[in-house]
Nucleic acid binder design. Sequence first.
DNA 1: CTTGACCTTGGAGCGTAGTCCACTGTTTAG
DNA 2: CTAAACAGTGGACTACGCTCCAAGGTCAAG
Lengths: 133, 133
Amino acid sequence: MRIGELAAQAGMTRDTIRFYEKVGLVEGRRLPNGYRDFPPETVAWLQYIRTAQTLGFSLSEIARSGEKLRGAPDTAVALSALFEEKIQVVDARIAELAALRADLAARVGTGCPLRASGRSTAAGDHREHERHV
Amino acid sequence: MRIGELAAQAGMTRDTIRFYEKVGLVEGRRLPNGYRDFPPETVAWLQYIRTAQTLGFSLSEIARSGEKLRGAPDTAVALSALFEEKIQVVDARIAELAALRADLAARVGTGCPLRASGRSTAAGDHREHERHV
DNA sequence: CTTGACCTTGGAGCGTAGTCCACTGTTTAG
DNA sequence: CTAAACAGTGGACTACGCTCCAAGGTCAAG
């Protein structure tokens, strides 16, 4: 499959796919004329990338799962494992949000809405991840 | 309060605060010598910014809530309203994640983890794509 | 008076995730 | 044969949210 068809199937632009190739998220052979040639599974992989992105994963994180996948004997099994892993992450994220929600709810209607007391619990100190979700 | 103390109190760098001022997220007067001078509430406002960020809000979105706040007769009440609003958003986000979780869970252990149906036959299978995600 | 801590500004740079563009090469249809 | 529709490359550019730096101004203590 050439890049144009792949892009159409996966619902993204050729440029995006070329960008993904540049950063190692997808790989394909080249036809004798230099055109990229992708196996049909790439469509599914690109869709997986989109899913993972909506879960808040960065492309480099996704690339790491991709490597795991490549080294696996059974792709289907490896993918299932991956999904289970992502479910853990989603659950963690939901728990985080629930804590934030509780924190917010506690502040509604208090005399001191901004400062409150619950700073330590939820919002205090996860700096490292979560840029835009 | 000058910028250094504010930065220490709010747990961010002077540069970040200057950046926030540049984009209109915070504002302060100037002392005769040109130094910035912030009212003490700014600490709470900066902490609110951090909270809102962990909720996935962009700085420009946060700036918009800030404007609402400034135009309010009662800051505490306005803030409570803001928190209630954010709770809606958090709930929506949680629902979104729950849906993604369900989607992931449905794919775990299926013969076709990525596509959801029909992956089993090796290569010739050009089925119309169901766009999950 | 000097030192050091603090403050000012402007501008460069970074990582992420693309997007757009010009220019060139290849393939296919009429 | 030519034109359109593809494909390739490199590089510039965007937006976001900072972060760092150089060069200089201000101020209190010793």
